[in-house]
Simulated scan of single mutants.
Amino acid sequence: MITGKTAPGPAHRTGAILAVLAEQASVTAQDLSRRTGIPVSAVYRHLGDLTQLGLVSPTRTRGRYCAGSLAVQMAVNYRREMLGGGEVKRRLARLASDTEELAAFLIPSGQHVLCVEAAEGSRVIKCSFSPGLSQPLTFGASAQAILAHLPDARVAEVCAAHRIGPAQAEALTADLPRIRDRGYAMSTGAVDEGVWGVSVPVLNRQGQLTGTVSTMAPEFRGRRNHQALLTLTHAAAQDIGRLEEPQP
């Protein structure tokens, strides 16, 4: 469930519905009610309004809904304004070419880590990160690189949202200061079995987190080439961070 109790007002309810639609390919009104705590009758009213706005669309399967056509325009504008009009994609492509592995740019989105851009290397790898897909903002190099730069209260919210027990939460938070100090996170098999990953946070001029650059490889290649992969990923993260600096 997106919230522990029914959302208090129309705007909050609309946001909760859109958040579920961002995570799921399609849903029913009953699915939305179950995930958000909003009564089914109210869900239908919100779906009607959102459909008129183009933010939601009925699918070809009766009774199911998905993101609407306006979401496409919003995605294009997001890429233009937040991803350097293609510069992030080009820098990831260069990283993927240099490493021959999968490169991705990920951001925190609610209680999840969302992949917003990726480039495949010459060595194909199967993993859970591709543009538009998200994973819980908990374990794994990408999630930990982000968590290390979030306030303690925000980290606690993430742990509570994913029902992480006290022992696991303590283990997770204990590593975060070390990850923040050294400037990267590494993991093996935390999200996908047999997949190694390194993730370097992208910081703006004020030192605030904007996302993270990750390189993913099969475990045997990642462990063998970890230093070179870290160096190349770190350089890409710095380059992407500089994209946000004002141009002279």
Score class of each variant (00 low, 15 high):
residue 226 H to C: 12
residue 37 G to A: 07
residue 182 R to S: 09
residue 96 A to D: 00
residue 44 Y to S: 13
residue 42 A to W: 09
residue 146 I to C: 02
residue 19 A to K: 04
residue 91 R to W: 10
residue 219 E to L: 10
residue 57 S to G: 09
residue 147 L to M: 08
residue 51 T to P: 07
residue 87 E to A: 15
residue 96 A to L: 05
residue 155 V to C: 07
residue 178 R to V: 14
residue 78 Y to W: 11
residue 124 V to M: 14
residue 216 M to E: 09
residue 167 A to S: 12
residue 133 L to N: 14
residue 203 L to C: 02
residue 174 A to K: 09
residue 65 Y to M: 00
residue 11 A to P: 06
residue 68 G to H: 01
residue 16 A to W: 02
residue 241 G to N: 07
residue 73 Q to A: 15
residue 201 P to L: 01
residue 89 K to F: 15
residue 136 P to Y: 04
residue 143 A to M: 00
residue 27 V to R: 03
residue 12 H to C: 14
residue 243 L to P: 05
residue 134 S to Y: 00
residue 116 V to I: 04
residue 30 Q to R: 12
residue 105 F to Q: 01
residue 2 I to Q: 04
residue 85 G to Q: 08
residue 192 D to L: 06
residue 40 V to E: 15
residue 169 A to T: 13
residue 79 R to E: 15
residue 54 G to S: 00
residue 116 V to Y: 02
residue 9 G to A: 14
residue 166 P to D: 15
residue 89 K to A: 15
residue 53 L to F: 12
residue 168 Q to Y: 10
residue 247 Q to H: 11
residue 45 R to S: 11
residue 205 R to P: 13
residue 99 T to H: 08
residue 238 Q to H: 14
residue 165 G to Q: 13
residue 55 L to D: 02
residue 2 I to C: 03
residue 105 F to M: 04
residue 76 V to Q: 12
residue 155 V to E: 05
residue 55 L to E: 03
residue 2 I to P: 00
residue 16 A to R: 02
residue 235 A to K: 07
residue 191 V to L: 10
residue 114 L to A: 03
residue 59 T to Q: 10
residue 224 R to W: 09
residue 141 A to K: 06
residue 21 L to F: 03
residue 68 G to R: 02
residue 100 E to I: 05
residue 76 V to W: 10
residue 212 T to V: 10
residue 134 S to M: 01
residue 119 A to I: 01
residue 61 T to F: 13
residue 4 G to N: 15
residue 82 M to T: 10
residue 220 F to D: 11
residue 209 L to R: 00
residue 138 T to S: 09
residue 58 P to E: 02
residue 79 R to Q: 15
residue 69 S to M: 12
residue 124 V to P: 10
residue 172 L to I: 08
residue 85 G to I: 07
residue 211 G to V: 00
residue 237 A to S: 08
